[in-house]
Nucleic acid binder design. Sequence first.
DNA 1: TATTTTTTTGGGAACATTCCCAATATTGGC
DNA 2: GCCAATATTGGGAATGTTCCCAAAAAAATA
Lengths: 345, 345
Amino acid sequence: MHQTTIIDIARQLGISKSTVSRALTAHPNVNAKTRQRVLELAEKLDYQRNQLAISLVTNQTHTIGIMVPEFISFFFPKVIIGAQEELAKSGYNVIICHSNESYETEVANAKALLASRVDGLIVSHTKETRNFDHFMTFQRKGIPVVFFNRVCEAMNVSNVTVDDYNGAFQAVEHLIQTGRKRIAHLAGPDTLANSRNRLNGYRDALTANGLPIDPELVIAYDLNLAKANIYVNHLLNLPNPPDALFAMNDPTALEALSVAKHRGLSVPDDLAIVGFSDDPISSLIEPGLTTVSQPVDELGQQAGQLLLRQLSTNDEEFVPERIVLPTSLIIRGSTVKNRQEMIQS
Amino acid sequence: MHQTTIIDIARQLGISKSTVSRALTAHPNVNAKTRQRVLELAEKLDYQRNQLAISLVTNQTHTIGIMVPEFISFFFPKVIIGAQEELAKSGYNVIICHSNESYETEVANAKALLASRVDGLIVSHTKETRNFDHFMTFQRKGIPVVFFNRVCEAMNVSNVTVDDYNGAFQAVEHLIQTGRKRIAHLAGPDTLANSRNRLNGYRDALTANGLPIDPELVIAYDLNLAKANIYVNHLLNLPNPPDALFAMNDPTALEALSVAKHRGLSVPDDLAIVGFSDDPISSLIEPGLTTVSQPVDELGQQAGQLLLRQLSTNDEEFVPERIVLPTSLIIRGSTVKNRQEMIQS
DNA sequence: TATTTTTTTGGGAACATTCCCAATATTGGC
DNA sequence: GCCAATATTGGGAATGTTCCCAAAAAAATA
């Protein structure tokens, strides 16, 4: 089916396509009457500009790619919305991709985004990603890249993260202050920078408070919940089991909570549990889950702003920025009995 | 910054751009050696095809727009993933838009998708949408449109829904069978076809079981949770309050649950509650929420398949399909005490 | 009215690719 | 070694737009 073009309009009006083009854009050099006639006919003919042709000649698409590893949990959609709103203010559209935690899909998506000539990329990589060549290609071609949440520390690009180290430190210190001595950590894979940082925070909090680091109590896993179940049971079966668990994220913590319930353990008396990310579910279950909360909306907004800033800066003058947003500890019933929710920043 | 083009490759190899083009695509008429040389140089020069130019000349983008009203809740992301996987099998990419429940944003998004020449559209409209002109434009231009979940019944296009009427009927009948006599309904806005269908199911279930329809017990609202809170309190303050509540969706039902707890009511004894959609949270809270479950993944898959089918059919021969997927009632503690989860189809 | 200035318009290259058709090179049969 | 058949290559139009530059028209000035 034929789509109306500026040439159709030009022909019907007996004027040149240049004039139609000017009338349709905000160009000043058109007679007001001519513009009026063009606009009316365009409306009548259902004219829609062809962004492909425009992007081809102007060499910019006004489109930003956002790639996330998944978007079932509340976290990534919220970040996307934050970024999208920020970008929309400057007239940018957004293509959302999810890599499904698959390195291969991530590479394929990166290729597709490159092919559709996005003006920039906002990305959180998969847990499988060890090689970042596919993102470096963007850099080489002068297309701004901003990482968030799961960042590539080796690449010299802007990124936004939360203070994973301090969040973890604070969480573990809270457990220590409430009397726990054997604190386990279900960590994420060491491919993720945030996972590594949380692990460091856990370790340093123990050391700073004179507690030993027992390797038996630290398990790094691939965030597959079925395995979380197994590992929690393993920890609780130890001859000298933990009295507290700090989990990489809320889903893991919730899984631990369910395991504890199943084994007839009392939370927080027999096992205190802390998560990370303040999933909406965490405040609704019984007991409420103590967790490290992140400013999710701001994460997205900042990512958007970083990209916009880079987009309006000369390549030579550009210096990458690394933004770290603060976390806060939300204390609920999974660590302190009969406690109404409390926030500790 | 200059991006490598087939002309660059052609020049460096001393051959024509036609040959390079053939080598880069799956075209048979190229010498194997030539193809090899082209592929190697392309790799070396970081060549990425320019999808804009390709789409411009081939007049198809292999891109499908998916527009949803929001994607914080688990529902829409899951549908998107289902559709995306189906479309990916046939080599289609996806642009995801969310209208943020705003009619204006929806219209703007539709324009942008039209401008970027998507090959098709999968959409669930906002709760504000009464005028569907912006979607009819797609139809007029021969671009396939598939509605899901929130459909426009007035448009002659394919759509996928769940059996809202029967889901609601079954839910209300379950409440009646467990002895409830005054069943309230917190309905959605009447702009949504699924909201209207659920309301009808509610009404007919009451009538079929010889119960009166009390207009006092039916409240239609805009799905803004803050208002749900107010309305639930209003219902419970009635001189003759309801003994059960059927809510338009799970978030509404959860809000009701929280209100009931706050007022010291026992659920399900004082107030039984049923939701719609089986949100992941619903099985985790205490008591578990009885709810109408929908085959969410299948919704997305079917939407994708419908679109693909239309894409490969002549416009003249095409006949819209309307698929209705079955729902099932999941019975939990919010309607039956001490009941382990049970599914009734 | 003639000339200059300003406003408005038109022509055509450029963007990166596909694809048709013609031209050239290679191969096979005799 | 010649001719036909086949394989491979090149040339150039076409896609829908922007944008520069020149041309034409209109308005302002003398």
